[in-house]
Design a protein around this nucleic acid. Structure first.
Lengths: 165, 165
DNA sequence: GTTATTGCAAACCATTTGCAAGTGT
DNA sequence: ACACTTGCAAATGGTTTGCAATAAC
C-alpha cells in the first residue's frame, strides 16, 4: 500500500543547491559538493553525526569538518532541500525534501525509529477539511506516535526441536 | 486498550499525578504540587523556561528550582500527562496529554494563526495504517500548513504575524 | 584581488547529574 | 528513622561561533 516513492527531478541535488547559492551570492565549494553528494546518496533519514562519519571515511581523502557539516545542513534546510523531521537521542534528524514524494511518519517512542508511509486518502481528507475552513493548504505533516512492531513484540522465544514434535 | 482521546476527567491533574507517584513509591512534594498547578493552569503549549519563569514569580514566595522543573517534566511525561510535541528555539515544547481531546491544527504561514480541528475519520485512518504496520499507535500529530481564510482574502483586514512560543 | 568559506578550538546553552542537606510518610 | 527529593553547582553533549588561513569567483 504505502511505498514511498521518489519523484522525478529535473536537476540534480547539486545543481539545485548551486542554483540556490548563486542567487544568494554564495559559492559552491568542494566541501559543499562532497556534502550534498553524501547526503543525497540515499533516501535514508540522517543526523549530523551520520554525515560527519561518512565525509571522514572517503576513499579520496577529502573530508569536511564538523562545523562545515553543521553549516551546510543549515543551508540545505534554508534551500528547502532537507528538513528536520524529528529528534532522536538528542540529535536533530533530517530527511530529504527534494526529489522525494510527500509522506508521513510513525515514530517509535521506544527506539525512535521512523517508519514512512504515504496515503492518498489522508491527504485528500486533510484537503477537504482545509477547504471547509477556507484554508489554502500547501502541505501537511502527520506523525503517528506509539511503539513500533519490533519494540512491541514479546521477548524473542527460541524454537526448540521439541516444539516441532 | 488505552483510550487516548478521552476527555471526561474524573480526577484533577494533581490527583492523577498523586496516583502515579503512589504506585511507584514516590512522594507528592510541595514542589511537585506547585509545578502541576502551574502547568495545568491553562491549555497552552509550554517549555521548561516558561514554567521555571512562572514558578519563580509566585505570590506565595514558594519556588521550584530549575533542576526540579526538569525532573518533574520527566515524571509528568512518564505519567502520560504531558508530552513533547516539538522543538522550538532549541527547546523542548510540551503540551497536555491529560484532560484534553486529541486535536489537530492548521497553521497559517502568513499570520501564524492556529486553527484547531478534530476529525474522527482521520484518526481512524491513521489507526488502520498503523495496524497494517504492526505499530501500536498512542496518538498522532497532524499539522496542515498553508494560508488561512483571512490572509488569503482580498486586502481588507489582515492578521498580523504573532510570536508563537 | 576580493570576499566568502573553512577548520580548529573555544563558547554556548538546554538539559542532566552528583551530592549534601532537607522533607514526606 | 528511612528513603525519596531538593537545590546548588558542575558536568554533559549537541550545536554554534570567533578568527586566521584558504579558496572561489
Amino acid at each position: 500500500m504505502k511505498e514511498v516513492s521518489s519523484v522525478d527531478v529535473a536537476i540534480s541535488p547539486t545543481e539545485k543547491f548551486q542554483e540556490y547559492l548563486t542567487t544568494r551570492g554564495m559559492r559552491l565549494t568542494r566541501e559543499r559538493m562532497i556534502f550534498v553528494e553524501e547526503v543525497f546518496a540515499d533516501h535514508e533519514h540522517f543526523d549530523a553525526d551520520t554525515i560527519i562519519e561518512r565525509v571522514s571515511h572517503r576513499k579520496d581523502g577529502r573530508s569536511v569538518s564538523r562545523s562545515t557539516v553543521y553549516r551546510v545542513l543549515g543551508l540545505l534546510e534554508e534551500a528547502g532541500m532537507i528538513r528536520k523531521v524529528a529528534r532522536q537521542n538528542d540529535k536533530d534528524v533530517f530527511e530529504h525534501d527534494y526529489g522525494y514524494a510527500q509522506h508521513d511518519h510513525f515514530i517509535c517512542e521506544k527506539c525512535g525509529e521512523l517508519t514512512e508511509f504515504s496515503n492518498d486518502k489522508i491527504r485528500q481528507m486533510v484537503e477537504e477539511i482545509a477547504a471547509e475552513f477556507g484554508f489554502r493548504l500547501s502541505h501537511h505533516r502527520l506523525e503517528g506516535h506509539g511503539v513500533c512492531a519490533t519494540c512491541s513484540a514479546p521477548p524473542q522465544r527460541r524454537h526448540h526441536k521439541l516444539d516441532m514434535i
